[in-house]
């Protein structure tokens, strides 16, 4: 009796451990999409925001999927659920000879710095940051391209629009007070806000720009709440720079009858209150990086995306832009493109 029992117990235990192996034995060799030897393999690692973030992870994935269908590459994605996943996820792709590993987000700087050094033959693209070394200093590596954006230029244009509207008294409350709600306080967010401050001040020096950070990219409530406070302080145009959290800004603004400005992608469909969006074409940058690997033109170092190369830009929303304002936006766009003016990238207190 005790013998049979033990045997059964052992069987059950082994079953647990063996299940994966059994699966392997009966395997139908269906892994890895049957790539041929010369297919370019690209792996994308999201930050903890995940693919559903309605922000840069999602946009980078769109670029990747576009490359998959247009360039015939093999495209694989891994989501990071915690920061300690970054290095294993990057290594997972690099160790298997992927041609390009794309890391999304400022917070992966040191992970990319680390893994790119261990795998000099694998190319890396890091969105929003340059790689960092073991001491936390920014470094350049021959196999890493940093895709950086001049968010401040897009921020400046929506700032011009806002400032002109305020100056001409065309905003809902004519209050000469506007707001910006950031997600985490990180450089890409601050660039947008700095540009916005500059644009507003250029057109309406008397206007006040309120700035708040939600420390949150996924839960929309804190962003809605920050917007509420800014509205009660008099703000009648609020710029969201907080990804998925910031969508709370747009709807809250809509409810309270003020104007809002979207970020990263055209968000005018999100709410009637969106008068414009400051866009950052992460999907294009991702696609271009993949293409450069495919056609052998990959370059290490930093690739800057700005107004000049249409990497960032201004997109109209649900408010017809008056001709004089459009003229001003166009003229500032040209000045920025020509280098006649430089938009600051640090937020003024």
């Amino acid at each position: 009796m005790s013998r049979t029992r033990m045997r059964l117990v052992a069987l059950a235990t082994c079953l647990m451990l063996l299940l994966p192996v059994l699966a392997a034995c009966g395997g139908t060799s269906s892994t890895s999409g049957g790539s041929s030897a010369n297919t370019i393999k690209v792996g994308l690692v999201t930050d903890t925001g995940g693919l559903n973030d309605k922000g840069f992870n999602s946009l980078a994935n769109q670029g990747l999927q576009k490359a998959k269908s247009e360039l015939g590459i093999q495209a694989d994605v891994t989501q990071s659920t915690k920061a300690s996943d970054y290095v294993p996820n990057l290594t997972n792709f690099a160790s298997r000879g992927y041609n390009l590993v794309i890391a999304v987000g400022f917070l992966m700087a040191s992970a990319v710095g680390q893994v790119s050094q261990q795998y000099p033959n694998v190319k890396f693209a890091l969105i929003d940051s340059t790689p960092a070394d073991a001491k936390g200093n920014s470094v350049t590596r021959s196999n890493v391209t940093s895709l950086l954006f001049k968010e401040q230029e897009a921020g400046a244009l929506v700032g011009i629009l806002t400032g002109m509207l305020e100056k001409q008294g065309k905003t809902p409350k004519k209050s000469h007070i506007v707001g910006a709600v950031g997600g985490q306080k990180i450089p890409p967010v601050d660039h947008y806000i700095a540009g916005f401050q500059w644009g507003v001040a250029k057109e309406d020096p008397s206007a006040k720009v309120l700035v708040a950070y939600s420390d949150e990219f996924s839960d929309p409530t804190p962003c809605a709440n920050k917007t509420d406070t800014q509205i009660s302080q008099g703000a009648d145009v609020v710029f969201q720079v907080a990804g998925g959290c910031g969508l709370g800004v747009l709807t809250e603004g809509g409810k309270k009858g003020i104007y809002t400005i979207g970020v990263d992608t055209d968000q005018s469909a999100s709410d009637q209150s969106v008068i414009a969006s400051a866009v950052k074409r992460v999907e294009t940058a991702t696609f271009d990086a993949i293409k450069s690997v495919k056609d052998g033109s990959f370059q290490s170092g930093t690739v800057l995306f700005d107004l000049k190369n249409d990497g960032v830009g201004f997109v109209k929303g649900n408010l017809p832009v008056p001709a004089d304002i459009q003229t001003e936006i166009d003229s500032v766009t040209n000045q920025i493109k020509s280098g006649a003016v430089t938009v600051p990238d640090t937020v003024k207190p």
């Binding site: 973030d53 309605k54 996924s218 839960d219 969508l247 709370g248 709807t251």
Partner: peptide
């Protein structure tokens, strides 16, 4: 209430 009263959107883990 949270999703369609306050935020009007679903984000992963939004109950935080």
């Amino acid at each position: 209430f949270l999703a369609i009263g306050i935020a009007n959107i679903f984000n992963d883990n939004m109950t935080s």
